[in-house]
Structure formats: structure tokens, C-alpha cells
Computed example of a mutant assay.
Amino acid sequence: MKSQINLITIWTDDIEKMKEFYNQILGFEVKNDLENYVEFKNDGVRFAICMRDVMYEFSNEYKKKPSGQAFELAFPCETTNDVDESFKNLVRNGATSIQEPHNMPWGQRTALFADPDGNIHEIFAEIK
């Protein structure tokens, strides 16, 4: 095995709502839509969403309901002003506000938002 991530898949019970969010609100173009699995165009790591029940026959572990924040996707912005404007646009278009933009002690301006399943993600830019 290589120590390299090739694919990130978000498991969901409502693929239509999630597909609309990642496509319409975050701007990911759909590369492949198999109804219960949607892969988006993305430079670098492949990115997809998939119905959780697709995996039920392979492992009962997929039937367990997730609890708490298990992962975070972080989206880069060009500037700190871009963080502020992007956050406003995300929330205006349907993302759930978690934390408005603020400067972090590690030299980034960040903001947090959630997708329809409640997964919390970050937008950020380096403070220059």
C-alpha cells in the first residue's frame, strides 16, 4: 500500500440533497452520476458521494449511524477578503453557518460551514 489518498467519499442517506449542495453551492462539476454514487471533477484526489446502503451487503459497519464530526474538507481561498466573501455566498446559497470568518493563531483566516448532512468544512486563506 502507498501512503497516498486517491479517493475521498462522503457517505450519505440523501444523495440528491448532497449532490445539489456540492454541485450547485460549492461548484463541483459532476463527472459521473450513477444515481447512488456521484463522482465530481476535482484536481488531485478523486472526490465522490455515495449512498450508505450501497455498502450494506459488504459490511454491517456501514449501517451504524455516524456520530460527531468525523472529517473536514478544507477549501483554499486566494485572499482573506475572499474568505469573507465566499463565506457570505455559501451561507446565502444554503450552506449552514458554523463559524464566521476569523483570524486563527496559526496565520490563517478561516470560516466554517456545514453541508446538508451536517459535515463541517472550512474555507481558509493565509494571512499576509
Rank of each mutant, 00 (worst) to 15 (best):
L73E: 00
L34I: 03
W11D: 12
G118L: 11
L26R: 01
N42W: 01
F124W: 10
W11F: 14
Q4D: 12
I123D: 13
T12F: 01
P66Y: 07
T110P: 06
Y56A: 09
V91D: 04
S3K: 09
R92T: 12
Q108A: 13
P105W: 10
T110R: 05
R109H: 08
V54G: 00
D13F: 00
Y56P: 03
F28M: 09
M51V: 03
F58T: 05
M55R: 01
I49Y: 00
Q99A: 15
K128D: 15
F28T: 03
G44W: 11
N32G: 01
V45C: 14
D33G: 05
S67E: 14
R52P: 02
S67C: 08
K128A: 13
L73K: 00
Q69P: 01
C50P: 00
D43N: 12
F71I: 06
N60F: 01
E57T: 09
V30N: 05
K88T: 10
Q4A: 14
I120Q: 13
Y22T: 02
N36V: 11
D33P: 08
K88I: 14
S86D: 09
F21D: 00
E39P: 02
D14L: 02
M1L: 10
A125I: 08
K88Y: 09
E61N: 08
A111I: 11
D115E: 12
L90G: 08
I123A: 13
E20D: 14
A95T: 04
F71Y: 10
K65H: 06
W106R: 04
P105F: 15
D13C: 03
A95W: 04
E61R: 05
N89S: 13
T96K: 10
I120D: 03
F71T: 05
R46G: 12
D117C: 13
Q69G: 03
V45R: 02
I98F: 03
F21S: 00
Q4I: 11
M1E: 10
M51K: 11
V30W: 06
Y62P: 02
G27K: 03
N6E: 15
L34H: 06
Y37E: 04
K88G: 04
I25C: 08
F75G: 01
N36P: 01
K41F: 15
N81C: 09
D33M: 05
G68S: 05
I120F: 05
N93D: 14
I127N: 11
A114C: 09
G94A: 10
F21H: 02
R46S: 15
G27Q: 11
N32P: 00
H121W: 11
N60H: 04
F71R: 00
T80V: 15
L26Q: 03
C50K: 01
M55V: 02
G118E: 12
I123T: 06
F113E: 09
V54C: 15
T110Y: 08
Q4H: 11
F47T: 01
H121K: 05
F58D: 13
M1A: 10
P66V: 13
L73T: 07
T110M: 13
P76E: 14
N93Y: 13
I123V: 09
A111R: 06
D117Y: 06
E39Q: 14
A111Q: 12
M18W: 00
D43H: 10
G68W: 04
E122M: 14
G94Y: 12
K2E: 14
Q69I: 03
D82L: 07
I10W: 02
N81A: 12
I15G: 05
E39M: 13
Q99T: 08
M51Y: 04
K64F: 07
F124L: 15
